[in-house]
């Protein structure tokens, strides 16, 4: 059973990203959208929360917030809305940490 964990809150304001990561099991994926995309900023304290996790981030939300590719940490995949749908499809279920 694979779960897609979706988070939309800033890691600096809420503990949602950290909690979702704690709940992740092998084969699960973390999808960061809206204000949760700030997690992937290079040099930011929150970046370490997702160390070693399979994390995916929504491209349009990154662009809206002015986070360029070169300001991102390595090892995070960027998807568009179609990729978002593919992820949902590929997972057995989704859990939203709102």
């Amino acid at each position: 059973m694979s779960i897609l964990h979706i988070v939309n809150k800033s890691p600096y304001e809420r503990n949602s990203v950290a909690l979702a990561v704690d709940y992740m099991r092998d084969g699960d994926t973390l999808l960061l959208i809206e204000d949760a995309v700030y997690t992937v900023m290079q040099g930011g304290k929150a970046a370490s929360i997702i160390d070693g996790q399979k994390a995916v981030v929504l491209g349009p939300d990154l662009a809206a917030r002015g986070i360029a590719k070169e300001k991102m940490i390595d090892g995070v995949e960027v998807v568009d809305y179609a990729g978002f749908v593919d992820l949902v499809e590929a997972s057995d279920k989704t859990q939203s940490w709102l």
């Binding site: 800033s10 600096y12 491209g59 809206a64």
Partner: peptide, 20 residues
């Protein structure tokens, strides 16, 4: 806090259908 993010350069909201 997160307010500093408001001033980040290079914001482009064309992909999320919101006013930049």
């Amino acid at each position: 806090d997160d307010g500093v993010f408001q001033l980040l350069k290079g914001q482009d909201t064309s992909g999320i259908d919101m006013k930049n």
